[in-house]
């Protein structure tokens, strides 16, 4: 295999340990997320491929952190303050170097609801140039709608915390002998996607620009996403941490399943649009051939089809 440290980490018995990481009645700061070291100084927490619930603490997305000689950068803060604090605790259990940065890969609650924990720990929050605008438009709605999904108890202390450092196009973060290359993408999964490439380990944190196992969700531009896949694939990574699903995974092979899904979805919709089939009807069947290939397909496919139909009918 091309990337031995990753394989080793997976095979040393830690794989899967992250799934039951949070014990509900313990202090999150004391427990800490069960993270795995997938390469030297690169740690990952793998979220469960489920909808966010009180039981899973909203811990449905993959998170991570990278330790440099002088400082640490966290990648996404998780779907609740509880999860954010638990990630922070996991970092503290690993290193005493300061957590200088939190990079938000995009606007969705399962990636940013723990931001307050990192702000309070003194980290600079970094995000896409469009992230403040996107959160200004959605933050209020997220706090309201997730109350229904996560429950009052877990919503306690969750705030929409905006980035204080923006990635216009590319930005390098130096952790001391270790450089992270941040890149802001044009609209794809959302209109505020950022990837983080750790040059020394050749690990790419792709945020939700890559889904594995968990059906991709579309909240930006399907055409933009498809168009930028060759540029994504050109990143010389040896392994990728997807936003959801198995982490780490081979790169760029990890792009293949979602590319296939996008092709089926777009193909079905283009056919429906050409035939004059209205949106409400077309979204019931579009993409169905992919149903068995993905978790949470029934939860998200029709939404994806709705957004994609509205985009594709302008072609």
């Amino acid at each position: 295999m091309a990337f031995d440290p990753l394989r080793r980490a997976l095979l040393t018995g830690l794989a899967g340990a992250g799934l039951l990481a949070l014990a509900p009645r313990q202090s999150p700061a004391a427990t800490g997320l069960a993270v795995r070291e997938i390469a030297d100084g690169v740690f990952v927490f793998q979220g469960v491929s489920e909808m966010a619930t009180p039981k899973n603490h909203g811990a449905v997305a993959n998170l991570g952190f990278v330790v440099g000689r002088e400082a640490v950068a966290a990648i996404d803060s998780g779907g609740s303050l509880v999860e954010g604090l638990a990630l922070l605790a996991a970092i503290r259990a690993t290193t005493d170097r300061p957590v200088r940065f939190l990079v938000a890969t995009h606007m969705h609650p399962d990636h940013i609801f723990g931001n307050a924990a990192f702000r309070d720990a003194g980290a600079t929050i970094v995000g896409h140039r469009n992230l403040p605008r996107a959160l200004a438009a959605r933050g209020d709605h997220y706090l309201k709608s997730y109350r229904r999904q996560l429950g009052e108890e877990l919503m306690k202390g969750i705030e929409i915390v905006l980035p204080s450092m923006l990635v216009e196009d590319r930005l390098e973060i130096d952790l001391g002998g270790r450089v992270l290359e941040l890149r802001a993408w044009e609209a794809a999964h959302t209109d505020n996607d950022v990837t983080i490439y750790d040059v020394s380990s050749k690990v790419l944190f792709a945020g939700d620009l890559v889904f594995l196992g968990h059906v991709p969700t579309l909240d930006g531009s399907l055409l933009g996403w498809m168009r930028q896949i060759p540029q994504l694939a050109a990143i010389p990574a040896r392994a990728v941490v997807a936003g959801h699903g198995e982490a780490p995974a081979d790169w760029p092979a990890a792009l293949d399943p979602q590319l296939r899904y996008f092709g089926v979805l777009a193909g079905d919709l283009r056919q429906a649009i050409a035939a004059g089939t209205p949106l409400a009807k077309a979204v019931k069947t579009a993409g169905r051939a992919e149903r068995d290939a993905w978790k949470l397909f029934d939860e998200y496919n029709e939404r994806n089809a709705t957004a994609a139909y509205a985009e594709l009918e302008w072609e």
Partner: peptide, 16 residues
């Protein structure tokens, strides 16, 4: 019923 999860009634691709 309102949409669940990360869906919000906001513009998806403001630049476009």
């Amino acid at each position: 019923k309102a949409s669940g999860g990360c869906s919000a009634p906001a513009v998806k691709n403001t630049a476009e």
